[in-house]
């Protein structure tokens, strides 16, 4: 059984008040997620990626089709807490996700809702704060922290529930480059060391190449699903769907289209350098 199973999901926001026909944001989306995977969901604005993010833990329910986590449909009310416990959601704006005025109390919010014993909450809060490298800020007020720090506290709040999967909806969109790096490093570390399944929704291609698997969404449909290498190698295809490619890939693409022979699609700067060296040596 797959960890998360998305089957033929259709969803549209209500536009009934102006008499128009509801526009479907998601049109027949199906895919599955295995335990421990790191998936990047890509798509430009309006592709339905944020809507999909809210489906994984039942914040939104599909109109037709189904989403299930560990075999539990997100529509079932009696298992919804189990679903939310195993799939945590981190949103874009860290300011709007923090509940308490002290960092450690905010991190404790999730476990407190689960009715866990105080000593166990304490242990989880400490280890979650250490996992995101925010332990020394545990007594601070969130509004005094930087954006990247706040987002890491928000992630710690999810980790403290000990989920199997974290869904992050453009967690770096409101951050500066420094904060973005902090958050991405944290996400990767959680995936590698704690084996937490990550579903990262982003529109930064350079973040997407770090994933094991990339899913491209356009106008509510999955248009590509595969490893970063296979997805980004088809630069033409991405361009026709008005999606960017990582800078290194773009450079290699332009060079090869003007006649230079470059093997292997490079995804980051190092790979690009290597590919260029090879190509130049051949000539």
């Amino acid at each position: 059984m797959n960890f998360i199973e998305v089957k033929n999901v259709v969803f549209g926001y209500d536009a009934a008040e102006n008499g128009e026909e509801t526009k479907k944001v998601l049109k027949d989306v199906s895919f599955s997620v295995k335990n421990g995977e790191f998936i990047a969901l890509l798509g430009h604005n309006g592709s339905g990626k944020s809507t999909l993010a809210k489906m994984f833990n039942g914040i939104l329910e599909p109109e037709s089709g189904s989403v299930s986590v560990n075999g539990c449909d997100t529509k079932w009310e009696d298992t919804i807490l189990d679903v939310r416990k195993s799939v945590g959601l981190v949103l874009q704006n860290p300011d709007n996700q923090l509940v308490a005025s002290i960092v450690e109390e905010d991190v404790a919010f999730g476990p407190e809702n689960l009715g866990i014993k105080p000593e166990e909450i304490r242990r989880r809060v400490d280890s979650a704060l250490k996992a995101v490298d925010m332990y020394e800020y545990r007594h601070h007020a969130p509004y005094k922290l930087s954006g990247g720090q706040k987002q890491r506290v928000a992630i710690a709040g999810i980790i403290a529930m000990e989920p199997e999967c974290i869904v992050l909806d453009e967690p770096t969109a409101m951050l500066d480059p420094q904060g973005r790096k902090e958050v991405m490093d944290t996400i990767i570390r959680l995936n590698r060391t704690k084996k937490i399944t990550i579903i990262l929704i982003t529109h930064y291609m350079d973040e997407a190449v770090l994933a094991d698997r990339v899913i491209l969404l356009d106008q509510g449909k999955i248009i590509k699903d595969g490893t970063p290498k296979t997805v980004f190698s088809d630069v033409e295809f991405l361009k026709t769907h008005s999606l960017d490619v990582p800078q290194a890939t773009e450079l290699a693409y332009r060079l090869s289209s003007s006649g230079m022979k470059i093997e292997n699609t490079p995804l980051n700067a190092d790979e690009c350098v290597e590919a260029l060296v090879k190509a130049l040596e051949k000539n």
Binding site: I59, R84, L89, N96, Q97
Partner: peptide, 26 residues
């Protein structure tokens, strides 16, 4: 707008009212 997002974040963190809720600080 903040309130809507906060409600969503709270729900995602299993908030379901005061029932069955414990506290870290005793």
């Amino acid at each position: 707008r903040r309130a809507f997002e906060l409600a969503m974040a709270m729900e995602s963190r299993c908030y379901h009212g005061g029932e069955g809720r414990t506290r870290m600080k005793v």
